[in-house]
Design a protein around this nucleic acid. Structure first.
Lengths: 314, 314
DNA sequence: GCTAAAGTTGCTCATCTGAGCAAGGACTCC
DNA sequence: GGAGTCCTTGCTCAGATGAGCAACTTTAGC
């Protein structure tokens, strides 16, 4: 588009969009036919002279969502635009996840949830009365060894309460020290039944952690920084329901995995609705691993993550 | 608009604007009638959920321009949107002024110009060949006492050259020390003829300066900082064609004014086209004085200045 | 509980707008 | 210089859209 055409397009756009004139009127005013006006407007939109944007905390990027679905064979995708303020990213994604959960049809009778900061936020933002009589099951261990005790339970309970249903918890450490202990615990009748209930869920809602010193597992005392460093050295990019995976979505350390309590990755892969919530630049790698290895059927994320997924997997 | 309607409006806007669906399709998809879709879109635009903006260096704000015309009885107004970068404001206004000048009809045979940074920029941005055979006359004195000598002449010459015409200069100090000198100079045949030519111009193009230590007059040595301080104390807000005016557009110091060489304010007020170019936050006060006192028939400015003019003159 | 006022909804109809097409113009490559 | 190709232009026509209206619903005030 040459200089003078561009200038004309600007004038046309001003008269049409800002002055609310019809294409006919604009044409008459500028001495061109209305068809030319129409074409200039189309071009102005294409070229970006005219920018139409939807400014709202609950806005979504449907075009990006479609690309994600297509590229990774997902059942669904939810992408929220990046807000001006970085702090706002995770609440918006959480809100979107909460909205999505409330809209899942058929309504899940049994919902398996993991825990973590992101999930906590989702629970908090979920609309009270989002459903009726839901059964929420915690799908991975979580009683932490230090202060933050109870947040894992809190998440499940909140989601259950707001859905006028009840929560079934898994009050067991996420990772046990000995394989034997883990086996023994799983043989326990109560624990086994929770595991069974979890395995039967019709939908799962979970997030992922980054493999690094800031991991919740280090924070909670399940793993030392050295442990995590070793995992990273072995190729770990992050954890999903407490299990560390590499960039291909494979378990990094099977011994560690044996000591991890909760649902297995294959159960997640087989699930009807496996809703994966991720926000933030740090999690691009884990997100990619999850999405490419079919761990989720639905992803809820921010635009930056979505673009990262789409760009680098060409 | 309540929460749920708003959310619906967002969904509607996304499907309509981003997915390019018809209102009918959007309605079918969301289970509402197409009329409701149309109404939601209208509201979304009104409320600002949908924002349509024209992003272009040459874009204008026609709505604001209309307000300016109406409020101040101007013949015309040109308002450029604020660019993201503050540095960009004055070039954009200058460009707009250059564009405007080239589009003035009937084409001015004789154009009176003042000088200064703004005018210089206008001259620089003017399109070569913007007209043919124009006669450019310098309307106020300008040979400066220090280094920057010649810029005043430069402006007029550039405008004339680009308009395939010739420039008539007024190579005399803007302000003389003695009234007698000024009178004597004006009696000079050559000078008198330039003044006469200037007075006969069919269009004037000029800017304004702020009354303050940074004034060109101080910079050029015509006035001392103390002089300017005194002017300010007397109510001066700035100068137009070298003459200091107060907020009502009246001459502040008649003695000083008597020593100022060039066109008078009344000649400006009587002119057919008095095109006033102002940019920048510092000049809001002078701009208001010029505009409210009828010194210009056309204003070319930036959005911030325009808003300042409109807001505070209610 | 009733009435008036204000707001909302679905509809008709006139107008606006984009897709698609044929004709004209400009540019390229022998 | 001429044929072929690409791009632009104005047009027809069908589909999309907004103004205006009457019926209906909600709200407020008594």
């Amino acid at each position: 588009m040459d200089e003078s055409t561009e200038l004309l397009a600007v004038r046309v756009a001003e008269l049409y969009y800002e002055e609310n004139k019809t294409q006919d009127e604009v044409g008459a005013l500028l001495g061109i036919t209305r068809w030319k006006v129409g074409r200039l407007l189309t071009r102005a939109r294409e070229v970006g002279i005219v920018r139409i944007e939807i400014v709202h905390p609950r806005a979504r990027r449907l075009d990006v969502e479609r690309q994600l679905r297509d590229r990774f064979g997902l059942k669904d995708a939810v992408v929220v635009p990046l807000p001006a303020d970085d702090e706002e990213v995770s609440p918006r994604v959480a809100q979107a996840a909460a909205d999505y959960l409330a809209a899942v049809r058929p309504i899940p009778r049994t919902l398996g949830v993991s825990w973590g900061r992101t999930l906590d936020e989702v629970a908090r933002l979920l609309a009270p009365g989002w459903t009726v009589g839901v059964q929420v099951v915690q799908i991975n261990g979580g009683v932490s060894l230090n202060s933050k005790q109870g947040t894992a339970a809190q998440t499940a309970v909140t989601i259950a309460q707001k859905g006028h249903g009840q929560a079934t918890l898994l009050p067991i450490p996420a990772i046990l020290e000995q394989v034997e202990t883990k086996r023994a615990v799983e043989r326990d009748r109560a624990v086994a039944s929770v595991r069974a209930l979890g395995a039967s869920a019709s939908a799962y809602l979970y997030s992922a952690g980054v493999a690094g010193a800031s991991s919740v597992h280090v924070d909670s005392g399940y793993l030392t920084e050295a442990d995590v460093d070793e995992l990273v050295a072995k190729g770990a990019v992050g954890d999903v329901v407490g299990r560390y995976i590499d960039r291909n979505g494979a378990i990094v350390d099977s011994t560690l995995d044996e000591r991890t309590v909760g649902i297995g990755l294959d159960e997640l892969r087989a699930a009807e609705h496996a809703i994966f919530v991720v926000a933030g630049d740090a999690k691009h790698d884990v997100a990619r691993a999850v999405v490419t290895s079919g761990l989720c059927s639905v992803i809820v994320t921010d635009e930056a993550t979505a673009h990262a997924l789409l760009e680098e997997t060409t």
